[in-house]
């Protein structure tokens, strides 16, 4: 198995001396789904957001350590290139409200100033919307606003928008927590399909979701990576007592 992503002694702090993520080391396999679990405030979203350098928007946040994406330390790369290699899907669906469905899919190209031919645009829109299972639902309303769709459809549109740039890694921050069970189910099926093309890291509050879709799981607690390993093994036979307590619902 290829290791696409490697975290080395990654520490992140919001206030000096207090670490939201504390010396995390992990390697992530290509074409797998890795779930990051843990109680609120354990640093799972903070860890995820470091991978596409979202923290740079907030100058108080300090990062140390290394994040290697395909062997390159992303903390020393141009953030715009990093973000194109590592796409992000957020907790709440956030299609651009002023753009049509088609333009939302193409937003990555338009915002980066990449010119496409008309045929090229149509091909990207169709293939990306097809891969999130939205094409048949919206092919007659591509010029309607993205916000016109239902919540679950909007979230799939946001996934399509991230996929359009053909990232190597897809980072998902609780992508189904704002959705109903049917929409959640559709997205989970979609992720199992998508992992053939790329690597997915998903932060989730929902343990059964992690058990259903992920190959590997991380359990974080108070900024520390307590346990990381094969999902099936972690759920049946956790090594750490904290993990066991969390999975049994004793806290979290």
């Amino acid at each position: 198995m290829n290791h696409i992503l490697e975290l080395k002694d990654l520490s992140i702090s919001y206030t000096p001396g207090k670490f939201a993520v504390n010396k995390v080391c992990a390697t992530i396999e290509e074409n797998s789904i890795t779930a990051i679990m843990g109680p609120s405030g354990c640093g799972k979203s903070t860890l995820l957001r470091a991978i596409n350098r979202m923290h740079e928007l907030y100058p108080d946040i300090k990062i140390s350590g290394e994040i290697l994406l395909k062997g390159n330390n992303i903390l020393q790369m141009n953030p715009m290139i990093v973000r194109r290699m590592a796409g992000m899907v957020f907790q709440h669906p956030n299609p651009f409200p002023t753009m049509s469905i088609a333009n939302n899919v193409l937003a990555g190209y338009n915002l980066n100033g990449i010119k496409l031919s008309k045929g090229g645009k149509e091909e990207i829109v169709e293939s990306c919307l097809s891969s999130v299972g939205l094409w048949n639902e919206v092919k007659d309303s591509l010029n309607k606003m993205g916000t016109f769709l239902s919540g679950g459809q909007q979230q799939r549109l946001c996934i399509a928008r991230a996929l359009a740039l053909k990232p190597d890694v897809l980072l998902m921050d609780e992508p189904t927590s704002a959705l109903d069970p049917i929409a959640t189910n559709r997205i989970e099926e979609l992720l199992l399909e998508l992992k053939k093309q790329l690597t997915i890291i998903i932060v989730t509050h929902n343990m059964s979701q992690a058990a259903r879709i992920s190959d590997h799981s991380m359990f974080m607690y108070l900024g520390d990576l307590i346990e990381y390993g094969n999902t099936e093994q972690m759920f049946t036979n956790p090594k750490d007592k904290k993990t066991e307590e969390y999975l049994n619902g004793q806290f979290g």
């Binding site: 992000m88 957020f90 651009f96 990555g108 915002l111 991230a162 740039l165």
Partner: peptide
């Protein structure tokens, strides 16, 4: 964040 996450300037 969504805009920046797409690698936009």
């Amino acid at each position: 964040e969504a805009g920046l996450a797409l690698g936009s300037s």
